[in-house]
């Protein structure tokens, strides 16, 4: 008899627990939405996912024309991750641009390892609120980059700074970090089991 009273409570609460477990995972896309909207953490999710839609923004930015009265300094940083033997640097450390002006810069990267590496450049920008106003027409960060052993490449980044960039921002820092996309992927269920069994 007591069971009967409790069934509804238990089922309801268990459902809440299950939903909250799902909510933990839902925080991932939610966080991405937040990042996009408010520029949290200086990242640009769409670029990472390869779904970046540039056409409209470029068209609009170009239609608005160049704002010769304003000069923005754009800095480029190149970082390597510990797990990737890599040489990576921008060929221009910084350039000055007017909003609405299409510019191209190049980055140099070389695979120092003796393996073919599939690498991905992860972009990050400061000030983070400026991400929305930094439109990439073409970027090596849109796709995975395949490097043969010892291969060196010069890679382009073509961009426009939006005229709507808030006043008070005079400098943008665009940073890229190259990561090995295969890193950690060789670990598997077997490795998990091994760590449990062998300690």
């Amino acid at each position: 008899m007591t069971k009967h009273i409790h069934r509804r409570t238990v089922l309801g609460l268990s459902l809440v627990a299950v939903l909250m477990f799902g909510f933990g995972f839902a925080l991932v896309p939610l966080y991405n939405v937040f990042c996009q909207a408010f520029g949290f953490n200086g990242r640009n999710i769409e670029v990472e996912n390869g779904t970046y839609q540039v056409r409209e923004e470029v068209v609009r930015t170009l239609r608005d024309g160049v704002d010769k009265n304003r000069t923005i300094t754009v800095q480029f940083l190149a970082n390597e991750n510990k797990d990737l033997p890599w040489e990576f640097r921008p060929l221009q450390r910084e350039i000055n641009v007017h909003p609405g002006e299409v510019k191209q810069v190049r980055f140099y990267a070389r695979n120092l390892s003796d393996k073919t590496v599939v690498a991905r450049a992860i972009p990050s920008m400061q000030p983070s609120v400026a991400i929305k106003y930094f439109t990439k027409v073409e970027c090596f960060c849109f796709n995975n980059q395949i490097f043969k052993p010892g291969e060196a490449k010069e890679m382009p980044l073509i961009f426009v700074v939006d005229r709507k960039l808030p006043q008070g921002i005079d400098k943008l820092t665009q940073s890229y970090t190259f990561f090995d996309t295969q890193q950690g992927k060789s670990d598997s269920v077997a490795a998990a089991v091994k760590s449990l069994v062998h300690g």
Binding site: V18, M20, F21, F23, G24, V28, D187, S188, V189, A192
Partner: peptide, 22 residues
């Protein structure tokens, strides 16, 4: 507890799959 312990479980599950399941 019912609201947040599952979120922690989610977080450690994500850590686990990041480490062992790619």
């Amino acid at each position: 507890l019912i609201a947040v312990m599952p979120v922690l479980a989610g977080a450690v599950t994500m850590m686990l799959t990041d480490k062992y399941f790619g």
